[in-house]
């Protein structure tokens, strides 16, 4: 496909993806409210919040690095989103997936948080470094089972290319990695709980401990940029999980449904748990999920040989 239309289609899908993230965010707020016995905010509340953030004024700035933090964060999210194919065999909705593989996607997932950490540290509030250290230690911990699970999938598919992994799962539901390698799936979905930062792993911005964490000093427009980045990253991650474990999607509708199903896995877990302490969270990920991940790698080797 020509580069220019490709950029156009990717930008369009990014726009739709970010908006879908906002919609899902509204649904989540509503669902959480219903679980808690509340009526909940209107579905379009994320859009109103976004508009309000844009129309408030910033009153403080801690240097340009501080300002760049949300930019890095959004770049990370957008990077993940554009590198993941959305619909199988549709070059318009494949993004730039043939130009990068899983490792690049994972790099972008890490990159956003690192950039945010750099910017947040500039704020100077003690909550920021505490939140950053919490977030980075938890991230390093959940990366272990996640990477093990990805190694297992790559072993089975023989490649780190997402398109190849998706192609290997075609031909029936039982061909999905969700069923063909349950160990890798379990490890990755537990790691997903940590990535999505719902309870019990919402230790970064824990409001009763270190309010807002790294983002303590961030304000309106910074926040709106972070909302965009977070939305792109969340949808990108869900699409990635859909491709890795649920056999990709054959149509846009299928993709939308699978994304919301994967998303609500962590939302429902988050509704019924308090949060861990940092070291408990790290210990959690390095214990059973890691063992399951190793089992997933061995299982993949066994099946292959």
């Amino acid at each position: 496909m020509e580069l220019l239309p490709k950029i156009g289609w990717t930008a369009l899908s990014l726009f739709v993806g970010i908006n879908y993230g906002f919609v899902i965010n509204g649904i989540i707020r509503k669902v959480m409210a219903r679980i808690q016995g509340r009526f909940g905010p209107p579905l379009w509340q994320p859009y109103i919040d976004m508009g309000k953030l844009l129309f408030q004024r910033n009153s403080i700035m801690h240097g340009y690095m501080h300002w760049l933090g949300p930019v890095f964060r959004s770049v990370g999210g957008i990077g993940v989103f554009v590198l993941v194919p959305i619909v199988i065999g549709d070059p318009r909705l494949a993004g730039f997936s043939e130009m990068g593989d899983l490792l690049l996607v994972m790099y972008f997932m890490f990159f956003g948080s690192l950039g945010m950490a750099l910017g947040a540290g500039e704020g100077g509030h003690p909550h920021s470094p505490i939140g950053v250290s919490r977030g980075l230690s938890q991230m390093t911990a959940f990366e272990v089972p996640f990477i093990l699970s990805i190694i297992a999938l790559a072993t089975a598919a023989g490649s780190f290319d997402i398109n190849a992994i998706v192609a290997g799962q075609q031909g029936g539901v039982l061909q999905w990695n969700f069923f063909s390698n349950p160990f890798a799936t379990a490890a990755a979905f537990i790691a997903l709980l940590g990535m999505n930062m719902y309870a019990p792993f919402n230790i970064v911005g824990a409001p009763t401990e270190i309010p807002v964490g790294p983002a303590t000093e961030y304000q309106n427009t910074y926040f709106s940029l972070m909302m965009i980045g977070r939305s792109a990253l969340a949808i990108g991650k869900m699409v990635l999980f859909m491709n890795l474990f649920l056999g990709g999607a054959h149509s846009v509708l299928e993709a939308l449904v699978k994304v919301i199903v994967i998303y609500f896995w962590s939302v429902f877990v988050g509704a019924v748990f308090p949060r861990f302490r940092t070291e408990q969270s790290v210990r959690f990920f390095l214990r059973w999920p890691t063992v399951i991940g190793v089992a997933g790698v061995l299982f993949a080797q066994l099946v292959r040989s």
Binding site: M32, Q36, G37, A199, P200, T208, V272, R275
Partner: peptide
């Protein structure tokens, strides 16, 4: 400890 459900109830 970050759970919203029980306090609401």
């Amino acid at each position: 400890m970050g759970m919203g459900t029980a306090p609401n109830w």
